[in-house]
Computed example of a mutant assay.
Amino acid sequence: MPRIALITGGNRGLGRATALALIEAGVEVIYTYRGDPGEKIDAVALPLTVGDLGSYAAFATELRRVLADRYDRADFDFLVNNAGVGHAGTIAQTPVEAFDEMLDVHFRGVFFLTQTLLPLIADGGRIVNLSTGLARFTGDGVYAAYASMKGAVEVFTRYLAKEVGPRRITANVVAPGPVATTFGGGALRDDERVRAHIGSVTAMGRVGEPEEIAGVIAALLGPGAGWVTGQRIEVSGGMLL
């Protein structure tokens, strides 16, 4: 029976890199997208706006159909809550609209989408939630709202791990540091001054690559990590140690 992973926001960035890593490991992948499904890969793409909580019941129904029709299953094994949106700004500069969007996607969305999908996750499955290194360090001090949502996800994950433990489901957090993706306008990928600054305050001396985050997520979903749960694993190259 194939192992099946569901990745939110798998059309680009860390989500896409995670999808490719899992496919390489022999895992069947279903990923969600908003707008553009991205470059075609050997996976099932389903539309979902993670911040739209009212759409979750219909999404679960469609997911059940895909599981039954494509895999002859009623459940899946791995949930990766990756979808995200970022708004930079000091506390004084953060508008309510930006705050609410991040809250809907990063916390309310993660909480209630997980709630909706728990009956579809197989016993012995795995859940990985994405946080950020900015929940530990403040960086340039312009991500208070974003990092606060991610801090809430970290607390939620510990409670989740305890609640789903009797089903032998693990729940962990991966907290990336600066990674060269298009997130936040792509400065970490394209702006050499920004990349040099990040490298100067990071033990490994550079910005991370999406594949390096994906590798850690894939490891947590692998057969050797079944005794790891309720943990926060930072993948930041040792930033601001």
Rank of each mutant, 00 (worst) to 15 (best):
A98N: 15
R64E: 14
T182P: 00
A74R: 14
A5I: 00
I127G: 08
G186I: 14
R65N: 06
A152L: 07
H106E: 10
N172K: 12
V66W: 03
A92E: 15
Y33F: 14
I169H: 04
R3A: 06
V105W: 10
V27S: 03
G125A: 01
G184P: 01
V110C: 01
T132F: 01
V110K: 02
G26A: 04
P176C: 07
T8I: 05
Y33H: 09
A45L: 05
D191E: 12
D123M: 06
D69G: 00
G224M: 04
R12S: 15
G86A: 14
A144E: 09
G124M: 05
I30C: 00
V173M: 11
D100V: 12
P2M: 04
F59D: 04
E234F: 11
A45K: 02
T170R: 03
V207Q: 04
A74G: 14
I41T: 12
G84V: 06
A74S: 15
R193C: 01
A180S: 14
D69Q: 15
G51C: 07
V96P: 00
V228R: 02
P47E: 10
A68N: 09
V207W: 03
V96M: 14
V179H: 02
G186N: 13
G15P: 11
D104G: 10
V66L: 00
T61N: 10
E234C: 02
A171D: 12
A43M: 05
L63A: 03
G35I: 04
L103N: 12
P223A: 08
P178L: 02
I213W: 06
R136L: 14
E192W: 02
T18F: 11
P2G: 00
E24C: 10
R16M: 10
A5M: 02
A196S: 15
A58I: 06
Q93P: 00
I198K: 05
V85E: 13
D52R: 03
G199W: 12
V142I: 09
E192A: 15
E39Y: 01
L63G: 05
A17L: 07
A19G: 05
P210V: 02
L241F: 11
L113H: 03
F111H: 13
